[in-house]
Design a protein around this nucleic acid. Structure first.
Lengths: 274, 274
DNA sequence: CCCACCGCTCGTACGTCGTACGGTAGCAGT
DNA sequence: ACTGCTACCGTACGACGTACGAGCGGTGGG
């Protein structure tokens, strides 16, 4: 979690700009170097890093709803407004959280087998995002800027480079894969919510799991009986659940392999130069 | 916008359950059929449909922030709480809005050329989602249930059926494409936000567009100078912008074509039976 | 014709959120 | 001891979603 990257955040991209702290610290440090002295003032008991870490913990444990400044501050036994010394806004905190996620990506070895390496990259990114059931609503509409995600892009480009590939097409191909992964996680989390809805309704109506199944089955009967959805009907008859939980992995890999097929065909043969 | 589908909503999936109205109306209608009479009470000046429509209009015009019950009610010259007669919660309204979007998908003709048809399906879905810059944060974590999206799935399955294909693999392939489209729109909207951030920062700091460019360029210089990102550096030198707005369409189509390559290879040859 | 009822509208109020503002506590230097 | 800065936080404001229940204006039955 500690930033061994020297914090190469892009300028002005952080939603709220630099935090008050950031500005002072930078200015102060320079002053200290010159005079060889220690800074005055109280020693900070909080830290940006700790805030981000607990924010992630809370989010992981309680979902997106729980990500509120008050909740996080409570977890830290701190006043709500104390957080604002380290982050300039909730938006900035979210940016930091998102970037921190990229820090936990396993840095698997690059074997040089382009297709295999890309595949494991995609899989591990998906796994990472799946571990955090809250990310999607925030991910959408939040550009992946920050040192950790930059590092991640660098690594991904390295996979291509190890196979002797560079150039614009490489970037395009990489983006395609990331796009697919993003979409896949999005769909999975949709599915998760769908299940949660179902369970909540079950409790609200005080029904057993069987009764619930019956009601759902009746709905499907209606859909089929309406005659408006012949193709869908056939799928149901074949026992294909459009949202089957168990087949999620298979489906992800199916699409990924299709995508990789196309990418390899377009990148492999014509050699590095594009 | 009017539901010519006979409103086949899945049971209990609507977040808040049926609205108060829905329950009464159903009960009332039955009573009326029996006695051949008209319902008493004031005629409603609002309607679910109208609410959803204005909600969409507001969202399109002012972005996700503006989607609030108060704002929508104001637009309708109605009291905030009046909306709750037609929708049981904001969540339900969002579900309705999302489903309504699928209603505006152009129903292009199915030519029987599988690959071409899938391609236009994907493109038109992307276009639809792109027209609504606010959708992604809500789309994520919101399963696509409802008559309009069901209709859409039906149509998509029809594309495969027209080429003589059915079975589980078809569903898997279809989902892969939808997944990719979802991800692509997600990434595009990330990009959009990134630009907005930049502009806001520009105004906040009172800089000209050129100064902004310089600052960004300095940042890139730092990244390159750090030596930690050789592959990324090379990309920059090649003039490849990882977030280039103009190449968005190309990139979308590149990935889509790759995906379709793989899908066609897996579906086409071995004939319908799977 | 009036009344009771019901479909519908909405004002008020509560608890939540992000965060602006200003105050205060503790430590470093003089 | 005093000054000044860093770090912390209590209070308050304006948004939000929405529970509650009062009120309004049609309609059918008497």
């Amino acid at each position: 979690m500690a930033d061994d990257d020297e914090d190469l955040w892009p300028p002005f991209f952080l939603s709220g700009g630099q935090s008050a702290q950031e500005q002072r610290v930078q200015h102060r440090m320079q002053h200290l170097r010159e005079h060889g002295k220690r800074p005055p003032g109280r020693a900070g008991s909080l830290s940006r890093d700790e805030i981000v870490r607990t924010a992630l913990a809370v989010a992981d444990a309680e979902g997106p709803h729980a990500i509120s400044m008050r909740r996080i501050a409570r977890e830290l036994n701190a006043g709500t407004m104390s957080l604002y010394w380290y982050v300039s806004s909730k938006e900035e905190l979210l940016d930091l959280m998102l970037d921190a996620l990229y820090g936990e990506l396993a840095e698997t070895e690059i074997t040089g087998d382009l297709r295999a390496d890309l595949r494991t990259m995609a899989v591990s990114q998906r796994d990472m995002l799946r571990r955090h059931r809250w990310v999607m609503p925030f991910m959408a509409g939040r550009p992946p800027v920050g040192p950790k995600s930059l590092r991640n892009i660098e690594r991904s480009l390295g996979i291509f480079a190890a196979a002797g590939l560079t150039g614009e097409t490489v970037m395009t191909a990489l983006m395609s894969i990331l796009t697919y992964v993003l979409g896949a996680v999005g769909r999975e989390q949709q599915e998760e919510r769908s299940q949660q809805d179902q369970e909540r309704a079950q409790q609200r109506l005080g029904l057993s799991r069987d009764e619930m199944g019956n009601i759902y089955w009746e709905f499907l009967q209606q859909v089929m009986a309406s005659g408006r959805y012949p193709n869908f009907t056939e799928m149901i008859k074949l026992g294909v659940d459009p949202d089957a939980r168990e087949t999620m992995d298979e489906r992800f890999e199916f699409g990924l392999d299709c995508l990789l097929d196309g990418i390899m065909a377009r990148l492999g043969p014509p050699a590095p130069a594009q």
